[in-house]
Design a protein around this nucleic acid. Structure first.
Lengths: 185, 185, 185, 185
DNA sequence: GATGAATGAGTATTCATTCAT
DNA sequence: CATGAATGAATACTCATTCAT
């Protein structure tokens, strides 16, 4: 039942945005009474939290997978881009709504949150491994930039309904690949 | 007076997010009665619209300026990145709040809106000029990707309070430059 | 089981007041499922009723005992005062909560209820016996006043945490004694 | 408007008890929209507070008046009893509901609240003056007992619809008078 | 009988919007 | 034109009660 509620909430949030996102509406969409909703979620905030964390977990899984072995630049770029496109292809409208502000969400998106630290740590590790060395400050910055570039490209593509466009995918992979190939100190 | 209201609204939205953003509070912060507010704005939506359009106009000005003369890759990249950083340095919290909130804002961020068309048109033109040719489909895609990468990097930097970090700026410029230097087709 | 529930209910009501007094919470505190609760009590009202009647029965027992033999004024006063202090010393917070909450309780506290009639009847009888005559209208009124004075003193003492204070007890006994000693017609 | 709301609230609370006492119902009874209610009262608690304090102020006025000059026992008793009967004759049902518990009210009825201190202080002073001396501990206790006895008698009389009964009034005055006449140390 | 998940009417409170002054 | 008191639909959340297992 928790799953049915989160599912319905994600659907509503993706399709109607914050405006249509009320606990009663979510419960109804999940085919559940509002009373039952509150048996499983103590308040509204915990629901947005659940949705957000589900998404962040998906994103983490992508970078974890990409870090498992030291990949050459083009392979790493493709792995990351394809992974993120896949993650955002489920209810594409949702993530854009989710990531930037919501009354509630700030804490989970805090720059020092556990997610942020692990997420960027994996990126730095992947970049360093790709460059055949231990992570440096430059790798950390580049990891962040690569993550942000993918983030921007994927969210805007979702907004334009272009998530599946091959030209976008190839161009983005190329951009990341070339940036990985540089040798900063 | 319209300006005072938009100013106050932007301040509140940037500092307190959607939660503190009520018409009464905005009117009060602008030193205007709520009655007067409704003399100038038919409803609340038109206020968020005004804030958004002010921001989009600032962004447009940046790309317009960058298109004025055909710049070499590094110069173009620096111009765009610095321009966007500057635009987002005024009330940095605001823009992240602004861009992704459906459905209030959907129309203005519609892929076929006049803004989107002109904005991406300028990007395509700048990329093509930089490559010394008339805009091709590849230039259009690359313009979009460059725009999106800058968007992602700048918004996430704003979230992290790192908008002024030189390493971020230089890395981003490098990434864009290298992508501009490629010769697709 | 009925007793366990009433016990738990009295405890919760005395400690947390009406705010924490919910059927689910009572059932849980009694170590009983809410389903079982409704096997024994048709609704919530019948539970408060049960608590109230338990208290009223305790009060009745006090006046019944005091009426058994014709006591001299000081002895009767002491018997009544000590009895009521004893009754209210069990969960002192409860009774103050209990007596004045309309309309849940109105019926049981109705001036013509069986309790009220018997209770005041005993008081009138005790006063008359103490004055060595059959009950007159004046004895009835004085019984009522004595009952009310004890009631006010005991409840306010409970509120102040002074139920056990000897000065209060002695003063109250003195007040009642002197009133019993008067000879009205 | 504040007055209209408090008036309506007192009426509802007196007639229907806590059960019918909802902000929406109060607003409606006051002929005011719920929005207007919240323009004048920040929450529900502040309304019960307002009602209670209105009552406590009335009670304080009675004892203040009785303390102005040193009265002989019978006169002081009559002044206090008649004053309290008068105060409780406005919406008689209300005060009984008000004084003992309500989720909110505990703080104002705290034994150390400013009201309690001033109220009992006046009683002690009046008793001492009546006995022609400076207040002693015995006067303090007797003041408290007299206050409590009046309280009990008046509230129970209100419950029985007997507030106007002369016999009750005379008997109570007699009881108080006799207690004032005693000479404790 | 006993259980406790499910129900939904009801409650306090907010906030965009109107309109008499 | 400007004001701000008044409005009331809408929202998050509670809790007495039911009923399938």
């Amino acid at each position: 039942m928790v799953d049915a509620i989160v599912e319905a909430a994600a659907r509503i949030l993706g399709q109607q945005g914050w405006a249509g996102f009320t606990t009663n509406r979510v419960a109804e969409a999940a085919g559940v009474s509002i009373g039952s909703y509150y048996q499983y979620f103590p308040d509204k905030h915990s629901l947005t939290d659940a949705i957000l964390h589900r998404h962040l977990d998906d994103c983490l899984a992508v970078v974890r997978r990409a870090t498992r072995s030291a990949l050459p630049p083009a392979a790493l770029a493709a792995e990351l881009v394809d992974g993120m496109i896949a993650v955002h292809s489920i209810t594409p409208g949702l993530h854009r709504v989710l990531l930037d502000d919501a009354p509630d969400i700030r804490s989970a998106r805090d720059p020092h949150s556990a997610f942020e630290v692990e997420f960027l740590g994996h990126y730095a590790a992947a970049v360093a491994a790709c460059r055949g060395r231990a992570p440096t400050e430059a790798d950390r910055i580049d990891g962040m930039l690569i993550s942000d570039a993918i983030d921007g490209a994927v969210h805007n593509a979702a907004r334009r309904g272009m998530l599946a466009a091959p030209a976008m995918r190839l161009g983005l992979i190329e951009m990341i690949t070339r940036h990985l190939e540089r040798r900063p100190d």
